[in-house]
Write a protein that binds this DNA or RNA. Sequence first.
DNA 1: CAACTGACCTAAT
DNA 2: CATTAGGCCAGTT
Length: 104
Amino acid sequence: MDSAATVRARMRAWVAKVPYGRVATYGDIARLAGAPRHARQVGLALRESAQDLPWHRIVNQQGKVSARGLDGSDDLQRVLLEAEGVEFDGAGRLSLRRHRWQPD
DNA sequence: CAACTGACCTAAT
DNA sequence: CATTAGGCCAGTT
């Protein structure tokens, strides 16, 4: 079967595969997990259990950190990426062209 | 059970 | 490259 929970599990598995210093988009993860139209579920999957995952390497299609609201975890995400050598421009965006990861 | 929500995406302009 | 409008779909209300 292919329950929503199962899909989320596959998403997390792909997130775990993203290497140091590289990033992937929500849409990429959804597609890799076999659910092309479930980009939003990726965010949900991470919100549920991001503890043991490099969740900070997931950004939206604009190359920006998706705004969360008030918990400040979005600021943390940027810090973590910069610590891995990812550079942001004045608009808070990174170059997907340079850092986007895709499996072999 | 209908309506709303949201860590999104694409295509058109 | 920036903005807008429409679509998507699992959760939550």
